[in-house]
Design a protein around this nucleic acid. Structure first.
Lengths: 186, 186
DNA sequence: TATTATATATATACTAGTATATACTAGACA
DNA sequence: TGTCTAGTATATACTAGTATATATATAATA
């Protein structure tokens, strides 16, 4: 989504290699927005192609590594992006929607079981996030921690919304199957 | 995410061309999960490559179109997928996280303004979803409508969680800036 | 009938994200 | 000293999703 600008922002602070960029990103995102190494390198390649960053080789051949630096054009791009208003809401896409949509020829019990499993998974996720939040609360307050804490809250708010939705679905599906037992027999 | 299996599910009902697949998908997703035509065709290409679907040409040359059919292998793949448990929670990624994370050297007012704008956008989204839900409620109940209604609810639950999070962020940022006016002057 | 708008239908080039392979380095410890 | 494990670092092939261009068919309307 904006890994590109995240990397630009990190490079604006200091030149880094791909591995360091991955770790820096993870640190900010609190470990729950997984950027994958492959994505780091392909994104950097695009930054370089677009003249927003340059790479400098370092070390002997054989064991060489590349350090990336932001260019003036990259700094401008980043600053412009920071103040540019966002126009899209985050799309909501989940495998479970497609599964539920196609499951109806199958029995209701399968749907309810799917929802229950999913609910369990999200409950576990919430527990994990809560634990992370607790660990964070034991550190001294500063801006980086405030941000990570807010990101954890975002994940918690959403996990909670998901769980409520799963319960809501279970109730609606039960309701619906009580009222339509005759018309749906194919 | 699972456009692939969505298309397989649609083809399992009846052979269709790319354009029809796009419309069928939109109908199920209630218009808020946008699949783009490009994605339909690239996904179908992969289905064909993997032997899950085949294409049959139809019409005269010049004005020919392709109709896609699911193969027995495709049917098996779809059925297996339907009952396969899901192991991942939906990742939560949003540009606004990255913006907020990098904004802190800038003034608080910019952050608050960003959050307020975002909140307005999501409120508008909720209004739109509510209207869709209302229109849907005037149609006769059946399973397809139940499903679309549930998908709209999912979008509403999430938009609500987002808005609450924006407000939560605004409050925390205000709080924080009151308590740290001396240490943060770079 | 000609013009315009809209729906139908496909394609291509791109960005974003996932999965996995590879190779080297540094420390653990038998 | 050898080897085993974890960490460091990069690369590649793939799936997923976005943006946009193109062309034809059909309906609307001047």
């Amino acid at each position: 989504m904006s890994v590109k600008h995240g990397l630009l922002g990190l490079l604006a602070k200091q030149p880094q290699n791909g591995y360091e960029l991955k770790n820096s990103f993870d640190e900010i995102a609190g470990g729950f927005w997984d950027v994958n190494f492959g994505q780091i390198y392909t994104t950097i390649d695009r930054l370089i192609k677009d003249g927003l960053a340059v790479s400098v080789s370092e070390g002997d051949e054989g064991a060489e590594r590349r350090v990336y630096q932001i260019t003036p054009k990259g700094v401008k791009e980043f600053k412009d992006w920071l103040v540019k208003p966002m126009v899209k809401v985050r799309p909501l896409r989940d495998e479970i929607f497609v599964k539920l949509a196609f499951m109806d020829p199958l029995d209701k019990e399968a749907m309810l079981q799917l929802l229950a499993e999913q609910r369990q998974m999200y409950l576990a996720k919430m527990a994990e996030l809560t634990r992370k939040k607790y660990l964070l609360s034991r550190q001294a307050a500063n801006r980086d921690i405030l941000m990570t804490d807010l990101l954890l809250d975002a994940a918690l708010f959403h996990a909670d919304a998901d769980i409520k939705w799963f319960e809501h679905c279970e109730a609606k599906i039960r309701d619906f199957s009580e009222n339509e037992d005759d018309e749906e027999r194919d």
